[in-house]
Amino acid sequence: SADYSSLTVVQLKDLLTKRNLSVGGLKNEWVQRLIKDDEES
């Protein structure tokens, strides 16, 4: 899986927004959300 934890907050928020995922919570929660989205898609 991609190394989301190395991305900036701005990059992570951009990815979350593009995938229609929530940008609520902490940075590590966003990373988990993106990883989960990868596994489900």
Rank of each mutant, 00 (worst) to 15 (best):
residue 1 S to R: 13
residue 1 S to Q: 13
residue 1 S to Y: 14
residue 1 S to G: 14
residue 1 S to A: 14
residue 1 S to T: 14
residue 1 S to M: 13
residue 1 S to I: 13
residue 2 A to W: 11
residue 2 A to G: 11
residue 2 A to R: 13
residue 2 A to Y: 14
residue 2 A to S: 11
residue 2 A to V: 15
residue 2 A to N: 13
residue 3 D to N: 07
residue 3 D to Q: 07
residue 3 D to E: 09
residue 3 D to Y: 12
residue 3 D to I: 08
residue 3 D to S: 05
residue 3 D to R: 08
residue 4 Y to G: 03
residue 4 Y to R: 02
residue 4 Y to I: 03
residue 4 Y to S: 03
residue 4 Y to W: 02
residue 4 Y to L: 04
residue 4 Y to E: 04
residue 5 S to D: 14
residue 5 S to F: 08
residue 5 S to Q: 12
residue 5 S to T: 12
residue 5 S to E: 14
residue 6 S to Y: 08
residue 6 S to W: 08
residue 6 S to E: 12
residue 6 S to R: 12
residue 7 L to C: 12
residue 7 L to Y: 03
residue 7 L to H: 05
residue 7 L to G: 04
residue 7 L to S: 03
residue 7 L to A: 05
residue 7 L to I: 04
residue 7 L to K: 04
residue 7 L to T: 03
residue 8 T to K: 00
residue 8 T to S: 15
residue 8 T to F: 00
residue 8 T to R: 01
residue 9 V to G: 10
residue 9 V to L: 12
residue 9 V to A: 11
residue 9 V to I: 13
residue 9 V to D: 15
residue 9 V to N: 12
residue 10 V to I: 11
residue 10 V to T: 14
residue 10 V to M: 12
residue 10 V to F: 03
residue 10 V to G: 13
residue 10 V to P: 13
residue 10 V to Q: 15
residue 11 Q to A: 09
residue 11 Q to T: 05
residue 11 Q to C: 05
residue 11 Q to I: 07
residue 11 Q to L: 05
residue 12 L to Y: 00
residue 12 L to G: 00
residue 12 L to N: 01
residue 12 L to S: 01
residue 12 L to C: 00
residue 12 L to Q: 01
residue 12 L to V: 04
residue 12 L to I: 08
residue 13 K to A: 07
residue 13 K to H: 10
residue 13 K to M: 14
residue 13 K to E: 09
residue 13 K to N: 07
residue 14 D to V: 07
residue 14 D to Y: 03
residue 14 D to Q: 08
residue 14 D to P: 01
residue 14 D to E: 13
residue 14 D to R: 06
residue 14 D to N: 09
residue 14 D to H: 07
residue 15 L to A: 06
residue 15 L to H: 04
residue 15 L to F: 04
residue 15 L to S: 02
residue 15 L to M: 11
residue 15 L to T: 03
residue 16 L to S: 02
residue 16 L to D: 03
residue 16 L to M: 06
residue 16 L to Q: 02
residue 16 L to N: 00
residue 16 L to K: 01
residue 16 L to A: 02
residue 17 T to M: 13
residue 17 T to G: 09
residue 17 T to I: 15
residue 17 T to E: 14
residue 17 T to C: 13
residue 17 T to Q: 14
residue 17 T to Y: 06
residue 17 T to P: 02
residue 18 K to C: 09
residue 18 K to I: 10
residue 18 K to G: 07
residue 18 K to M: 09
residue 18 K to F: 04
residue 18 K to L: 09
residue 18 K to V: 08
residue 19 R to T: 03
residue 19 R to N: 05
residue 19 R to E: 05
residue 19 R to K: 06
residue 19 R to A: 04
residue 19 R to C: 05
residue 19 R to D: 05
residue 19 R to Y: 00
residue 20 N to C: 10
residue 20 N to Q: 11
residue 20 N to D: 09
residue 21 L to A: 04
residue 21 L to D: 04
residue 21 L to I: 06
residue 21 L to Y: 00
residue 22 S to M: 06
residue 22 S to R: 05
residue 22 S to Q: 08
residue 22 S to T: 07
residue 23 V to F: 08
residue 23 V to N: 08
residue 23 V to S: 10
residue 23 V to T: 15
residue 23 V to M: 11
residue 23 V to K: 08
residue 23 V to H: 14
residue 24 G to H: 15
residue 24 G to Y: 02
residue 24 G to L: 10
residue 24 G to W: 00
residue 24 G to Q: 15
residue 24 G to T: 14
residue 24 G to C: 15
residue 24 G to I: 14
residue 25 G to T: 02
residue 25 G to W: 01
residue 25 G to N: 03
residue 25 G to S: 03
residue 25 G to I: 01
residue 25 G to F: 02
residue 26 L to D: 15
residue 26 L to F: 12
residue 26 L to A: 14
residue 26 L to E: 15
residue 26 L to R: 11
residue 26 L to T: 15
residue 26 L to Q: 14
residue 27 K to M: 09
residue 27 K to Q: 09
residue 27 K to N: 06
residue 27 K to S: 07
residue 28 N to I: 08
residue 28 N to K: 07
residue 28 N to H: 14
residue 28 N to E: 15
residue 28 N to Y: 10
residue 28 N to D: 15
residue 28 N to T: 08
residue 29 E to I: 02
residue 29 E to K: 02
residue 29 E to A: 05
residue 30 W to A: 05
residue 30 W to H: 06
residue 30 W to R: 03
residue 30 W to C: 07
residue 30 W to N: 05
residue 31 V to N: 02
residue 31 V to A: 01
residue 31 V to Y: 04
residue 31 V to I: 15
residue 31 V to G: 03
residue 31 V to D: 04
residue 32 Q to G: 09
residue 32 Q to K: 11
residue 32 Q to M: 07
residue 32 Q to P: 06
residue 32 Q to F: 00
residue 32 Q to V: 09
residue 33 R to E: 06
residue 33 R to F: 01
residue 33 R to A: 10
residue 33 R to P: 04
residue 33 R to L: 08
residue 33 R to Q: 07
residue 33 R to H: 05
residue 34 L to S: 02
residue 34 L to R: 00
residue 34 L to Q: 00
residue 34 L to K: 00
residue 34 L to E: 02
residue 34 L to F: 01
residue 34 L to P: 01
residue 34 L to M: 03
residue 35 I to P: 01
residue 35 I to G: 04
residue 35 I to T: 08
residue 35 I to L: 12
residue 35 I to Q: 10
residue 35 I to H: 08
residue 35 I to M: 12
residue 35 I to K: 09
residue 35 I to V: 10
residue 35 I to A: 07
residue 36 K to S: 10
residue 36 K to L: 11
residue 36 K to F: 09
residue 36 K to V: 09
residue 37 D to F: 15
residue 37 D to H: 13
residue 37 D to E: 05
residue 37 D to M: 07
residue 38 D to F: 06
residue 38 D to E: 04
residue 38 D to W: 06
residue 38 D to K: 02
residue 38 D to A: 05
residue 38 D to G: 03
residue 38 D to T: 02
residue 38 D to P: 00
residue 38 D to C: 07
residue 39 E to Q: 12
residue 39 E to T: 09
residue 39 E to N: 10
residue 39 E to K: 10
residue 39 E to A: 11
residue 39 E to R: 10
residue 39 E to P: 02
residue 39 E to M: 13
residue 40 E to Q: 13
residue 40 E to L: 15
residue 40 E to S: 12
residue 40 E to P: 06
residue 40 E to V: 11
residue 40 E to F: 10
residue 40 E to N: 12
residue 41 S to M: 13
residue 41 S to V: 11
residue 41 S to N: 14
residue 41 S to I: 11
